[in-house]
């Protein structure tokens, strides 16, 4: 069965292009191919200049995020057979500057990620001789879901607030902050609050929920952010009622 699939890909080469423009390619249809396989076919056989990020090909590294027919998806997670009848339109992830072709500039995300201090901030530093932090299964369950983020940025592409306000810390970074705030070994809530509880943090979110819908690892950043709003509000009132009682 010799079927072909047409891909329409947004190209942008800063050294020659003033504006991005679509370029179409025809690749063979294979029942088991994902969009990433089609891109690799293009790069190997049709057009070596096409640039895109990818690595694991199994939806765990988070590299190959792109807009596929207007929806943020991992290219390794989108099967050709699901798009066969529609034609496939591929663009770089929304809400990020385009570096080249399907490669986006993610520097802003890297800054946002580090700004939430995504590491255990212990109450007191334990000497090694004291042994490990002990954590029960119940304590792990409290935050485990939010550890699954692969930083693929699909949530940033889906979130309209990320499009409307560049400074918005964003779903993945806020979900990761929540992951640490819920960790029983951590006492860094206060230190993260200047970012998390700022106007550019959880308060920019209007619970559209698109982030959680597109997340390939079911992290549910939307839930994390709403929970963080409630705890930020309670902290705010505690601080207001008991000023100076900063942890």
């Amino acid at each position: 069965m010799s079927e072909d699939v047409t891909l329409s890909i947004l190209r942008f080469r800063p050294e020659v292009d003033r504006e991005p423009h679509f370029q179409t390619y025809t690749v063979p249809y294979r029942e088991d191919w994902v969009v990433l396989d089609a891109l690799n076919h293009i790069k190997d056989h049709l057009d070596a200049t096409l640039s895109y990020r990818w690595s694991c090909h199994m939806a765990i590294c988070g590299s190959c995020g792109m807009m596929i027919n207007g929806e943020p998806k991992l290219a390794c997670h989108a099967f050709l057979r699901d798009y066969r009848h529609d034609g496939i339109r591929i663009e770089p992830l929304d809400h990020f500057p385009i570096e080249r072709d399907l490669v986006i500039v993610m520097d802003s995300f890297m800054e946002k990620l580090s700004s939430v201090k995504p590491f255990v901030i212990a109450k007191e530093e334990k000497p090694l001789s004291d042994g490990e932090h002990l954590q029960s299964p119940l304590q792990l369950m409290a935050f485990k879901q939010y550890t699954l983020c692969i930083n693929c940025l699909l949530c940033y592409a889906a979130c309209p607030q990320c499009g409307l306000k560049e400074d918005f810390v964003g779903p993945a970074a806020l979900a990761l902050a929540h992951r640490y705030n819920l960790d029983s070994r951590d006492d860094g809530n206060d230190q993260r609050a200047d970012v998390v509880a700022s106007n550019e943090g959880v308060w920019e979110c209007t619970f559209v929920g698109a982030c959680s819908e597109v997340c390939p690892k079911h992290v549910d950043p939307a839930a994390a952010i709403q929970q963080a709003k409630i705890s930020a509000s309670l902290d705010w009132f505690k601080a207001w009622l008991l000023p100076g009682a900063h942890r």
Binding site: P97, I98, E213
Partner: peptide, 22 residues
Amino acid sequence: RRPYIRKLERNWWLGQRRYVVY
């Protein structure tokens, strides 16, 4: 390097069903 910034359209929310529902 000349990163290209795509402008968000004012009617962005008409672009997808999930945004219209929102």
